[in-house]
């Protein structure tokens, strides 16, 4: 555990809490892509199956359970509790265009051809693209509420900090996880355009981020 990794995990946690609290307080999930949230719940579910097979640390186990619980709570709020506010007309990204290639790739490129390894690889590849329905929705409507952009900022920050963590681990313990690093870098690139808009628009006091 290093400071980048811990800060990355905290950013991830903050992002998910921001989203949950926003939906809960406003009793609305307007502007939030339910599809992205279902994909994230699927990411956590397929990655954390090792909760049943190996024990790494109390921190590891607690964080996994918290991420799982919060991602399912988010999906519940969007599709059940506040489904009247769910903006399905703008959440039209075709998820099968992500799932089919990701399933195919996870069978082709994995550390071992076993169910747990393939599912873990699937979760890594899927996480890299799971935010796309959300970014697509913002592009389609042309705007995002500032709380939604804070959520995306902390998600992107989490990814950037994980890259710093991998650089650190590579130099200190010669740790290199090829699948995680390559898809992690790809995932971070998706946030770059958003980061630029976030800094130039949201941080200058706009209530909403309006796309140019």
């Amino acid at each position: 555990m290093n400071v980048f990794r811990l800060a990355g995990d905290v950013s991830h946690l903050v992002a998910i809490i921001i989203l949950l609290v926003k939906i809960w307080r406003s009793k609305s999930c307007a502007g939030i892509s339910g599809k992205s949230q279902v994909l994230f719940a699927l990411v956590f579910t397929t990655r954390y199956l090792d909760l049943f097979t190996v024990f790494i640390s109390a921190y590891n186990t607690i964080m996994k359970v918290v991420f799982l619980a919060m991602s399912y709570a988010t999906v519940y709020l969007i599709y059940m509790r506040f489904r009247n506010m769910y903006d399905s007309e703008n959440d039209t990204f075709r998820v099968e265009f992500l799932l089919v290639p990701v399933i195919g790739l996870s069978f082709l490129e994995n550390y071992a051809f076993t169910p747990l390894e393939i599912l873990w690889t699937f979760s890594i590849f899927l996480e890299a693209v799971a935010i796309m329905p959300q970014l697509f929705m913002i592009t389609k409507t042309g705007e995002a509420e500032s709380i939604t952009t804070h959520y995306l900022f902390f998600l992107g920050l989490y990814r950037a900090l994980y890259i710093a963590n991998w650089v650190w681990r590579y130099h200190t313990e010669e740790f290199f996880d090829q699948i995680a690093v390559v898809s992690g870098v790809v995932q971070t690139i998706f946030y770059c355009d958003f980061f630029y808009l976030y800094v130039t628009r949201v941080l200058r006091g706009k209530a909403k981020m309006i796309l140019p």
Binding site: V54, I56, N110, A112, W120, F175, F176, A180
Partner: peptide, 10 residues
């Protein structure tokens, strides 16, 4: 070739 790392990251 690829080898399995301990999956200690989240």
């Amino acid at each position: 070739s690829l080898h399995i790392n301990p999956k200690d990251e989240l």
